[in-house]
């Protein structure tokens, strides 16, 4: 039987195995949040629009945290199609949806109060990439079938505590009229790149054990021996 590295036929089942409900719910809620400034009419200001878009981006990222959830992960653990390919396909699918969704979210915000698109888009991309690389990291370290819930909880915690705990010298959550806006978005870009690197590294399957001992355990119900 002929074999080839990547089969386009993989696309259809990959689309079907995506957690569309989580993504759809998060996307709908995110759009609702992004629409708040428009719904408020003239009462809306730039700060509210910025907060609405940030909340919207985090909400979508919470849904995206479930993208790598795969109940069949252990059943398909030993197939020749690499994990990087399978994860990459899912990430591409969600990234395509995210691009359309984010454009809609931006357009929902009245132009008069809309923050600079590039800066806020970098923030949104960082949130999304954090969710995806977090899920890839969780799978790499724990090999669980459904890391989404834990990653979403981590992301939500970080979204709440991040603005409170970020040091002033490394400010991230600044308004557009703040002189630190450009510098802050340089930092957002650094974070984004770091997340991409982590995600790419975690997508690879180690041939030898590279991680510290004791962090992973077999998925079987049988516990390890006490020998």
């Amino acid at each position: 039987m002929p074999v080839r590295a990547i089969d386009p036929a993989l696309l259809r089942p990959a689309v079907r195995t995506m957690p569309w409900r989580a993504i759809g719910a998060a996307g709908a809620l995110g759009l609702l949040l992004a629409a708040v400034p428009r719904l408020m009419g003239e009462e809306a200001d730039a700060r509210l629009a910025l907060d609405a878009l940030r909340a919207s981006a985090v909400t979508f990222a919470l849904g995206a945290a479930f993208v790598l959830d795969d109940p069949a992960r252990h059943t398909t653990a030993a197939v020749p199609t690499r994990r990087a390919v399978r994860h990459g396909l899912r990430v591409l699918l969600v990234a395509s949806v995210a691009a359309v969704w984010w454009t809609a979210a931006l357009l929902l915000v009245p132009e008069a109060v809309r923050p600079p698109a590039v800066g806020i888009t970098v923030e949104a991309a960082t949130a999304l990439t954090l969710a995806l690389s977090g899920a890839a990291f969780a799978i790499h370290r724990g090999d669980g079938a459904r890391p989404g819930r834990a990653v979403a909880a981590f992301l939500l915690t970080l979204a709440v505590l991040g603005p409170l705990l970020t040091p002033g010298s490394w400010a991230l959550f600044v308004p557009p009229d703040d002189p630190r806006w450009a510098a802050a978005h340089g930092r957002w870009a650094v974070l984004l790149c770091a997340e991409v690197v982590v995600g790419a590294v975690c997508a690879a399957e180690p041939g030898r054990r590279l991680t510290p001992r004791g962090l992973r355990s077999p998925s079987g119900t049988s516990g390890p021996s006490r020998a």
């Binding site: 074999v3 590295a5 079907r16 795969d70 109940p71 252990h74 197939v79 079987g220 049988s222």
Partner: peptide, 24 residues
């Protein structure tokens, strides 16, 4: 595996076909 998982909305044909695609 000891506790095999599935995509529950797939039929056996679709699921095994999916694994076959993953098996190149």
């Amino acid at each position: 595996p000891q506790t095999p998982g599935f995509h529950p909305d797939f039929t056996p044909f679709e699921f095994v076909d999916y694994v076959a695609i993953l098996k190149e």
